[in-house]
Amino acid sequence: MSNKNFALIGASGYIAPRHMRAIKDTGNELVAALDPYDGIGIIDSYFPQASFFTEFERFDRFVDKYRRDTGKKIDYISICSPNYLHDSHIRFALRNGADAICEKPLVLNPWNIDQLKIIEKESGQKIYNILQLRLHPSIIALKERVAKELAENPDKIYDIDLTYLTSRGKWYFISWKGDMEKSGGVASNIGVHFYDMLCWIFGDVEENIVHLKTPDANAGFFKLKNATVRWFLSVNYDYIPDDIKATGQRTYRSITVDGEEMEFSGGFTDLHTRSYEEILKGNGFGLEEAYGSISTVSTIRNLEPIGMKGDYHPFCKRVLGK
Protein backbone atom coordinates (compact mmCIF):
# COMPACT_ATOMS: atom_id res chain seq x y z
CA MET A 1 0.00 0.00 0.00
CA SER A 2 1.48 3.35 -1.06
CA ASN A 3 1.72 6.16 1.45
CA LYS A 4 -1.35 8.39 1.66
CA ASN A 5 -1.49 12.17 2.03
CA PHE A 6 -3.64 13.64 4.78
CA ALA A 7 -4.90 17.06 5.77
CA LEU A 8 -6.30 17.84 9.21
CA ILE A 9 -9.02 20.32 10.19
CA GLY A 10 -9.14 21.27 13.87
CA ALA A 11 -5.46 20.65 14.52
CA SER A 12 -5.26 22.47 17.86
CA GLY A 13 -8.13 20.62 19.49
CA TYR A 14 -8.01 18.05 22.28
CA ILE A 15 -8.45 15.01 20.06
CA ALA A 16 -6.23 16.09 17.13
CA PRO A 17 -2.96 14.60 18.50
CA ARG A 18 -4.54 11.13 18.41
CA HIS A 19 -5.20 11.62 14.71
CA MET A 20 -1.67 12.90 14.12
CA ARG A 21 -0.30 9.85 15.88
CA ALA A 22 -2.57 7.55 13.87
CA ILE A 23 -1.43 9.10 10.59
CA LYS A 24 2.21 8.68 11.62
CA ASP A 25 1.78 5.18 13.05
CA THR A 26 0.21 3.98 9.80
CA GLY A 27 3.17 5.31 7.79
CA ASN A 28 1.37 8.17 6.09
CA GLU A 29 2.00 11.90 5.69
CA LEU A 30 0.23 14.99 7.02
CA VAL A 31 0.78 17.69 4.44
CA ALA A 32 -1.52 20.44 5.74
CA ALA A 33 -3.37 21.38 8.91
CA LEU A 34 -5.94 24.06 9.76
CA ASP A 35 -7.01 25.67 13.02
CA PRO A 36 -7.92 29.29 13.88
CA TYR A 37 -5.88 28.87 17.09
CA ASP A 38 -2.15 28.89 16.38
CA GLY A 39 -0.86 27.22 19.56
CA ILE A 40 -0.01 24.08 17.63
CA GLY A 41 3.45 23.12 18.88
CA ILE A 42 2.32 19.51 19.34
CA ILE A 43 2.56 19.10 15.56
CA ASP A 44 6.37 19.19 15.87
CA SER A 45 6.23 15.79 17.53
CA TYR A 46 4.59 14.29 14.45
CA PHE A 47 4.80 16.35 11.24
CA PRO A 48 6.96 19.48 11.61
CA GLN A 49 7.06 19.89 7.82
CA ALA A 50 3.27 20.11 7.46
CA SER A 51 1.90 23.39 6.15
CA PHE A 52 -0.25 25.13 8.76
CA PHE A 53 -3.08 27.60 8.27
CA THR A 54 -5.26 29.66 10.58
CA GLU A 55 -7.62 30.82 7.83
CA PHE A 56 -9.90 28.41 6.00
CA GLU A 57 -9.63 30.31 2.71
CA ARG A 58 -5.83 29.86 2.58
CA PHE A 59 -6.16 26.20 3.56
CA ASP A 60 -8.73 25.74 0.78
CA ARG A 61 -6.35 27.33 -1.73
CA PHE A 62 -3.48 25.08 -0.58
CA VAL A 63 -5.53 21.88 -0.95
CA ASP A 64 -6.57 22.85 -4.47
CA LYS A 65 -3.10 24.10 -5.49
CA TYR A 66 -1.40 21.00 -4.05
CA ARG A 67 -3.38 18.79 -6.41
CA ARG A 68 -2.77 21.00 -9.43
CA ASP A 69 0.94 21.71 -8.87
CA THR A 70 2.19 18.30 -7.80
CA GLY A 71 -0.05 15.91 -9.66
CA LYS A 72 -0.82 14.44 -6.25
CA LYS A 73 -3.87 14.89 -4.09
CA ILE A 74 -5.03 14.89 -0.52
CA ASP A 75 -6.30 11.33 -0.07
CA TYR A 76 -7.96 11.86 3.31
CA ILE A 77 -9.08 14.88 5.32
CA SER A 78 -9.32 14.22 9.05
CA ILE A 79 -11.92 16.35 10.81
CA CYS A 80 -11.53 17.31 14.48
CA SER A 81 -13.40 20.60 14.36
CA PRO A 82 -16.35 21.60 16.60
CA ASN A 83 -19.37 19.33 16.14
CA TYR A 84 -21.56 21.83 14.30
CA LEU A 85 -18.88 22.30 11.61
CA HIS A 86 -18.43 18.59 10.83
CA ASP A 87 -21.09 18.54 8.11
CA SER A 88 -19.51 21.46 6.22
CA HIS A 89 -15.97 20.11 6.56
CA ILE A 90 -17.02 16.65 5.37
CA ARG A 91 -18.54 18.26 2.29
CA PHE A 92 -15.31 20.20 1.73
CA ALA A 93 -13.31 16.97 1.83
CA LEU A 94 -15.52 15.20 -0.69
CA ARG A 95 -15.61 18.18 -3.07
CA ASN A 96 -11.80 18.09 -3.11
CA GLY A 97 -11.62 14.43 -4.01
CA ALA A 98 -10.69 13.24 -0.53
CA ASP A 99 -12.30 10.72 1.77
CA ALA A 100 -13.37 12.18 5.13
CA ILE A 101 -12.41 10.76 8.53
CA CYS A 102 -14.55 12.51 11.11
CA GLU A 103 -14.62 12.49 14.88
CA LYS A 104 -17.82 11.66 16.71
CA PRO A 105 -20.51 12.83 16.59
CA LEU A 106 -20.39 12.68 12.81
CA VAL A 107 -23.15 15.31 12.56
CA LEU A 108 -25.84 16.60 14.92
CA ASN A 109 -28.97 15.26 13.21
CA PRO A 110 -29.89 12.19 11.13
CA TRP A 111 -31.18 14.28 8.22
CA ASN A 112 -27.62 15.61 7.81
CA ILE A 113 -26.56 12.01 7.16
CA ASP A 114 -29.30 11.62 4.56
CA GLN A 115 -27.83 14.56 2.61
CA LEU A 116 -24.27 13.31 3.03
CA LYS A 117 -25.28 9.99 1.47
CA ILE A 118 -26.27 11.88 -1.67
CA ILE A 119 -22.99 13.82 -1.78
CA GLU A 120 -20.98 10.66 -1.11
CA LYS A 121 -22.64 8.98 -4.07
CA GLU A 122 -22.16 12.01 -6.34
CA SER A 123 -18.48 12.40 -5.46
CA GLY A 124 -17.49 8.75 -5.34
CA GLN A 125 -15.67 9.43 -2.06
CA LYS A 126 -16.22 7.83 1.35
CA ILE A 127 -17.10 9.22 4.77
CA TYR A 128 -15.76 7.43 7.83
CA ASN A 129 -16.72 8.01 11.47
CA ILE A 130 -14.40 7.31 14.40
CA LEU A 131 -16.37 4.82 16.50
CA GLN A 132 -13.41 3.51 18.45
CA LEU A 133 -15.32 1.56 21.10
CA ARG A 134 -16.25 -0.98 18.41
CA LEU A 135 -12.53 -1.80 18.26
CA HIS A 136 -11.94 -2.10 22.01
CA PRO A 137 -10.99 -5.70 22.93
CA SER A 138 -13.31 -5.80 25.96
CA ILE A 139 -16.25 -4.47 23.94
CA ILE A 140 -15.61 -6.97 21.14
CA ALA A 141 -15.49 -9.78 23.74
CA LEU A 142 -18.82 -8.61 25.19
CA LYS A 143 -20.42 -8.50 21.74
CA GLU A 144 -19.25 -12.04 21.00
CA ARG A 145 -20.56 -13.27 24.36
CA VAL A 146 -23.95 -11.60 23.89
CA ALA A 147 -24.27 -12.89 20.32
CA LYS A 148 -23.66 -16.43 21.55
CA GLU A 149 -26.19 -16.07 24.37
CA LEU A 150 -28.81 -14.56 22.07
CA ALA A 151 -28.34 -17.39 19.58
CA GLU A 152 -29.45 -19.73 22.37
CA ASN A 153 -32.12 -17.40 23.79
CA PRO A 154 -33.21 -14.75 21.24
CA ASP A 155 -35.74 -13.19 23.63
CA LYS A 156 -33.25 -12.47 26.42
CA ILE A 157 -33.38 -8.89 27.76
CA TYR A 158 -30.22 -7.63 29.49
CA ASP A 159 -30.33 -5.08 32.33
CA ILE A 160 -27.70 -2.37 31.83
CA ASP A 161 -26.55 0.68 33.78
CA LEU A 162 -24.27 3.15 31.99
CA THR A 163 -22.58 5.81 34.12
CA TYR A 164 -20.01 8.21 32.68
CA LEU A 165 -18.70 11.30 34.40
CA THR A 166 -15.76 13.21 32.98
CA SER A 167 -15.05 16.40 34.91
CA ARG A 168 -14.78 19.67 33.03
CA GLY A 169 -13.91 23.11 34.37
CA LYS A 170 -15.58 26.46 33.81
CA TRP A 171 -13.89 26.79 30.41
CA TYR A 172 -16.16 24.04 29.07
CA PHE A 173 -19.30 26.17 29.31
CA ILE A 174 -17.61 29.21 27.75
CA SER A 175 -16.34 27.16 24.82
CA TRP A 176 -18.40 25.82 21.90
CA LYS A 177 -18.88 22.59 23.87
CA GLY A 178 -21.14 24.39 26.31
CA ASP A 179 -23.32 25.77 23.51
CA MET A 180 -26.17 23.36 22.69
CA GLU A 181 -26.48 24.71 19.14
CA LYS A 182 -22.80 24.03 18.42
CA SER A 183 -22.10 20.83 20.36
CA GLY A 184 -25.48 19.16 20.65
CA GLY A 185 -25.16 19.09 24.44
CA VAL A 186 -23.77 16.56 26.93
CA ALA A 187 -25.34 13.51 25.27
CA SER A 188 -23.78 14.34 21.88
CA ASN A 189 -20.43 15.39 23.33
CA ILE A 190 -19.65 12.49 25.66
CA GLY A 191 -22.42 9.94 25.18
CA VAL A 192 -22.72 9.30 21.47
CA HIS A 193 -20.03 6.58 21.21
CA PHE A 194 -21.45 4.75 24.25
CA TYR A 195 -24.90 4.75 22.67
CA ASP A 196 -23.37 3.46 19.45
CA MET A 197 -21.62 0.67 21.32
CA LEU A 198 -24.75 -0.41 23.20
CA CYS A 199 -26.89 -0.46 20.04
CA TRP A 200 -24.14 -2.34 18.17
CA ILE A 201 -24.31 -5.10 20.76
CA PHE A 202 -27.92 -5.12 21.99
CA GLY A 203 -29.95 -3.80 19.05
CA ASP A 204 -31.71 -0.61 17.99
CA VAL A 205 -33.46 1.85 20.30
CA GLU A 206 -37.18 1.02 20.60
CA GLU A 207 -38.01 3.46 23.40
CA ASN A 208 -36.17 6.62 24.46
CA ILE A 209 -37.01 8.49 27.69
CA VAL A 210 -35.13 11.43 29.22
CA HIS A 211 -35.38 11.82 33.00
CA LEU A 212 -32.94 14.67 33.52
CA LYS A 213 -31.46 17.37 31.29
CA THR A 214 -29.26 20.16 32.64
CA PRO A 215 -26.29 21.93 31.00
CA ASP A 216 -23.86 19.61 32.84
CA ALA A 217 -25.83 16.35 33.18
CA ASN A 218 -28.23 14.20 31.17
CA ALA A 219 -29.93 10.98 32.25
CA GLY A 220 -32.51 8.69 30.77
CA PHE A 221 -33.72 5.25 29.79
CA PHE A 222 -33.49 3.20 26.60
CA LYS A 223 -35.34 0.09 25.62
CA LEU A 224 -33.20 -1.67 23.05
CA LYS A 225 -34.15 -4.82 21.17
CA ASN A 226 -32.37 -6.99 23.74
CA ALA A 227 -31.67 -4.68 26.68
CA THR A 228 -33.01 -2.01 28.97
CA VAL A 229 -30.51 0.76 29.75
CA ARG A 230 -30.47 3.34 32.53
CA TRP A 231 -27.86 5.96 31.64
CA PHE A 232 -26.31 8.96 33.34
CA LEU A 233 -23.76 11.35 31.81
CA SER A 234 -22.17 14.41 33.37
CA VAL A 235 -19.23 16.80 33.18
CA ASN A 236 -19.72 17.91 36.82
CA TYR A 237 -17.01 16.77 39.25
CA ASP A 238 -19.43 17.04 42.20
CA TYR A 239 -21.39 14.01 41.04
CA ILE A 240 -18.40 11.65 41.07
CA PRO A 241 -18.61 9.10 43.93
CA ASP A 242 -16.58 10.05 47.00
CA ASP A 243 -14.43 6.89 46.90
CA ILE A 244 -13.37 7.77 43.34
CA LYS A 245 -12.61 11.38 44.32
CA ALA A 246 -10.45 10.07 47.17
CA THR A 247 -8.14 8.40 44.64
CA GLY A 248 -7.58 11.72 42.87
CA GLN A 249 -9.46 10.67 39.75
CA ARG A 250 -11.67 13.14 37.88
CA THR A 251 -13.34 10.57 35.64
CA TYR A 252 -15.74 7.78 36.53
CA ARG A 253 -16.84 5.23 33.94
CA SER A 254 -19.00 2.23 34.72
CA ILE A 255 -21.11 -0.16 32.68
CA THR A 256 -22.89 -3.02 34.42
CA VAL A 257 -24.55 -5.84 32.48
CA ASP A 258 -27.01 -7.86 34.59
CA GLY A 259 -25.30 -6.47 37.68
CA GLU A 260 -21.81 -7.46 36.53
CA GLU A 261 -19.30 -4.64 36.25
CA MET A 262 -17.67 -4.51 32.85
CA GLU A 263 -14.01 -3.57 32.94
CA PHE A 264 -12.78 -1.47 30.04
CA SER A 265 -10.91 1.38 31.72
CA GLY A 266 -7.73 0.63 29.77
CA GLY A 267 -7.02 -0.16 26.15
CA PHE A 268 -7.96 3.25 24.73
CA THR A 269 -4.53 4.65 23.84
CA ASP A 270 -4.19 3.08 20.39
CA LEU A 271 -7.82 2.90 19.26
CA HIS A 272 -7.48 5.81 16.83
CA THR A 273 -4.52 4.09 15.20
CA ARG A 274 -6.58 0.90 14.98
CA SER A 275 -9.41 2.93 13.45
CA TYR A 276 -7.07 4.34 10.80
CA GLU A 277 -5.67 0.89 10.03
CA GLU A 278 -9.17 -0.38 9.30
CA ILE A 279 -10.11 2.69 7.26
CA LEU A 280 -6.98 2.33 5.13
CA LYS A 281 -7.99 -1.27 4.46
CA GLY A 282 -11.46 -0.14 3.42
CA ASN A 283 -13.10 -1.46 6.59
CA GLY A 284 -13.95 1.77 8.40
CA PHE A 285 -17.34 2.69 9.87
CA GLY A 286 -19.40 4.70 7.42
CA LEU A 287 -22.67 6.62 7.31
CA GLU A 288 -24.89 3.61 7.95
CA GLU A 289 -23.01 2.72 11.14
CA ALA A 290 -23.22 6.31 12.38
CA TYR A 291 -26.95 6.73 11.73
CA GLY A 292 -28.34 5.00 14.83
CA SER A 293 -26.38 6.90 17.47
CA ILE A 294 -26.91 10.25 15.72
CA SER A 295 -30.65 9.61 15.61
CA THR A 296 -30.55 8.72 19.32
CA VAL A 297 -28.77 11.90 20.46
CA SER A 298 -30.94 14.05 18.21
CA THR A 299 -34.04 12.58 19.85
CA ILE A 300 -32.60 13.10 23.36
CA ARG A 301 -31.92 16.75 22.52
CA ASN A 302 -35.55 17.31 21.61
CA LEU A 303 -37.27 15.31 24.35
CA GLU A 304 -38.66 16.97 27.47
CA PRO A 305 -37.32 15.40 30.69
CA ILE A 306 -39.98 13.66 32.79
CA GLY A 307 -38.15 13.84 36.13
CA MET A 308 -37.68 10.98 38.57
CA LYS A 309 -40.42 8.73 37.27
CA GLY A 310 -40.18 5.15 36.12
CA ASP A 311 -36.87 3.33 35.80
CA TYR A 312 -34.42 6.21 36.33
CA HIS A 313 -30.68 6.06 37.01
CA PRO A 314 -29.89 6.38 40.76
CA PHE A 315 -27.36 9.18 40.10
CA CYS A 316 -30.33 11.43 39.24
CA LYS A 317 -30.72 11.85 43.01
CA ARG A 318 -27.28 13.49 43.16
CA VAL A 319 -28.50 16.21 40.81
CA LEU A 320 -32.01 16.69 42.11
CA GLY A 321 -30.99 16.35 45.76
CA LYS A 322 -33.53 13.67 46.65
Rank of each mutant, 00 (worst) to 15 (best):
K213Q: 13
A33F: 10
K143Q: 15
P82A: 08
P215H: 06
F6S: 09
D243E: 14
P17F: 05
D179S: 11
D242L: 08
K213E: 13
K121C: 05
W171I: 12
L8C: 12
I174M: 11
G71P: 07
S293K: 03
G41K: 13
Q125A: 04
A100G: 10
L85G: 01
S293G: 04
K156W: 02
S138V: 01
N208L: 14
G220C: 05
S51P: 00
G178L: 05
A32M: 04
G310M: 08
I240Q: 03
I255M: 07
R168E: 15
M197P: 04
G169Q: 09
K117T: 06
S45E: 10
K72F: 03
Y252S: 11
H136S: 00
D114C: 06
I127Q: 12
S81N: 08
R95G: 05
G185W: 00
D75A: 09
D87I: 06
P154E: 13
S234P: 01
N5Y: 11
I140S: 02
C316L: 08
R145L: 12
G321M: 13
I300Q: 03
F173D: 12
S138F: 01
S175N: 13
L131Q: 01
I77Y: 01
L116I: 14
I294W: 04
I79F: 04
F59A: 09
P241Q: 10
N153W: 00
E289D: 15
S298F: 09
E263C: 05
G259F: 07
N189W: 02
Y158S: 01
L85I: 02
W231R: 02
V235A: 00
